[in-house]
Structures are given as C-alpha cells and as structure tokens.
Nucleic acid binder design. Sequence first.
DNA 1: GCCAACACGTGACCC
DNA 2: TGGGTCACGTGTTGG
Lengths: 194, 194
Amino acid sequence: MERNRRKKLNDKLYALRSVVPNITKMDKASIIKDAIDYIKQLQEQEKVMLAEISELDSLKEEKVSSIGDLDFDDLHFMQRKKKRTAQGSSSSAGSPSSPPIEVLELRVSEMGEKTMVVSITCNKKRDTMIKLCEVFESLNLKVLTANITSVSGSLLHTLFIETDEMGSAQVKEKIEAAIADLDSPRSPISSLSF
Amino acid sequence: MERNRRKKLNDKLYALRSVVPNITKMDKASIIKDAIDYIKQLQEQEKVMLAEISELDSLKEEKVSSIGDLDFDDLHFMQRKKKRTAQGSSSSAGSPSSPPIEVLELRVSEMGEKTMVVSITCNKKRDTMIKLCEVFESLNLKVLTANITSVSGSLLHTLFIETDEMGSAQVKEKIEAAIADLDSPRSPISSLSF
DNA sequence: GCCAACACGTGACCC
DNA sequence: TGGGTCACGTGTTGG
C-alpha cells in the first residue's frame, strides 16, 4: 500500500516536471525547485502583462472613442508617446488621464456696455487651470483681466471679459458647453478648436 | 544524512506550497497537484494575455506608424476626413501654428518662508495664457493665487506660489526652462500635432 | 481496527 | 571509498 502511495506521489512529481520547462536535473528536489522558480517567474510575468494590458487598454479606450468619430485622441497619443520631455502636464483638454473638472458654480453677469464678469468655482484637480484657460481662449472672448485663487482644493476664477453683442445668458451657455465638451470630448472638432 | 536530504526536500515542498494560492490540503500529494493545476492555469492565462497584448499592440502599432512615424498622408486623411476642420488655433503647447510666447520680463522674489512672487510680463499672442498656465501646472508649484491682466497686447501675470526648499533663482530657472521648452519643441512629433 | 499520511532507517545504485 | 539519490519496508500518529 505504501508502495502505491509513493508511486502516486512520484507520478504527481513527474507530472509537475512535465509542465515545467527548463528542467535542469531530473533530481527530485530540483524538480520542485524548478517548479517554484517557474511559478515565481510566471507570477511576475503576469503582473507585468497585466500592467501592460491595462496601459494599452486605456490607450485603446482613447482610440476607440476617437476612431469612430476621428482621432482627436491621436493627438494625445502622439504627445504622450513622444513624451520623455518630462512629465509635463499632459497638455490640453479632454485627456482621459487628467480628472474631469468639476464646476461648483458658474455666474455670468453684465457689468457695462460690453463687459461682463464671469465667476467660476470648481474643485482643483490636476490641469484644471489649464482647462479653464483653454476654455476661455477657445471661446476667444477678450479677457481684460482674470484672477485665479486656489484655496483648499477649490479654484476660484473671476474674469472680466469684453464681448460684443452677446447677452450674459449666451456667454454662460457657451462656457458651460465648452466645459462640458472638455469632459466628454464627443466632438473632436470643438476640442480641436483651440 | 538521509534525514537531511528528506528535510531539504520537505522544505522545498513547503516553499512550493507557499507560492501556490488556493491550497486545498496540506497533503503532500495535494500540494504538488495544486501546484500543477496552478501552473497550468497560469500558462493558459499567459496565452490569453499574450494574445490580448499582441492584439492591443497591433492596434497601437497602427496608430504609431500612422502618426508617430510621420505619415503625412494619414494626417491629411484625418484632416480631410473630419472635414470642416475648424479654423481652430490648433491645440496646446508647442504647436507651431501658434506664435511663440515672448517674455518681456520675469521676476521671482521670495516673500516669506515658503512663498514667493512670480511676475511675468509678455506679449499677448494667441494661446499665451494657456501656455503660461501649462508652464505653471507642469512645474507643479502650488499656486496660491494668480492674477492675469491683459492690457494692450501685454499680458501681466502675477502669482503667489508656495515652494519648499527652493530658492527664487532656482524657481526662475525652472520657469525659464519650461517656457523655452515650450517655444522650441524638440520633438518632431509635436510639429505634426497640428 | 482500518486507512492515510508521514518520517525514519536501510540497502542498492551511480558517479 | 564516499557523497548523493532513490525505493522500500516499517513504526507512529490521527481520523
């Protein structure tokens, strides 16, 4: 009986050896050692591949969203790929790697004939400042003066702009649209229009 | 002596058990069995992941070759495809179609323990504001408050930043470098980024 | 008392 | 001859 048990155990061991490549020695102990090393190797490889996959996957996401509607994200891809120029702020709008901006409050009020005051409060995440600047620049409103204050996670923007023949409501709409566009860049065109 | 051999073998076996999750029984034979199953599982997973990676990779390749490798036709194709390309002042930093920013004056002075005042004056061209914002954000200095005033072609930036363990000279250098980097995009890809 | 799993000592075999 | 490995039979423990 003991003979049978040993046989089974040996069979298992041979089976183990059969699934492990790079067998150095038929040595019983070496078989197990090789198996251990192999497992560790596989586990590390798994980690690496997993990381790579998720990376490529996120890249793919960008693509997919752009492919149907065309390639805006290719820009990011290119920029990111070239990179090696320091981690620079991932540049412009819509980049999925930078968090969406969260607008807490948006007020637009007329001040005089052609000037109005825009007041935006939002949570300060990475690149928020850039995005807001892009928004203003993309709308190419004439910015007379702007004030940015970041306090404890919030970013307060106050700017005096000059517009011709536009109501405050209209401006507000535009700004809202531009910001929304930034977060979900469904339309590559407007996103490209900076 | 034989005792020692057996001990070593057992140690190997326990080591094997330690690298294998999902151990059902401490049973010697079961350890090997579980190890075998685990290895097979890992191997299959490896195949799957490898396939997935190569798939994603090929997708990436497409993009890279079509863009990173200077494929003008593709660029044109893209532009034409999306037609109505919008007059857009092109995207963010380093874009050749937006004029370089011209810094007229740059002053950095320490205000207190960790805060300093950065004062930048430059000609206001298109996208200047964005670029400046990117510069600050890329240096990720903590911006306490910032004031932007544009008057007759000039753009006055004054910001209070918080730094730790950096002299004003150092900060100034950094800012200058970042701006220079912005103007002379060393990477050819950025030239292609519309 | 049976079965299973284990550790142990021993003889056989091979560089 | 000795260091290394192996298979075998046996004693012991625990379910």
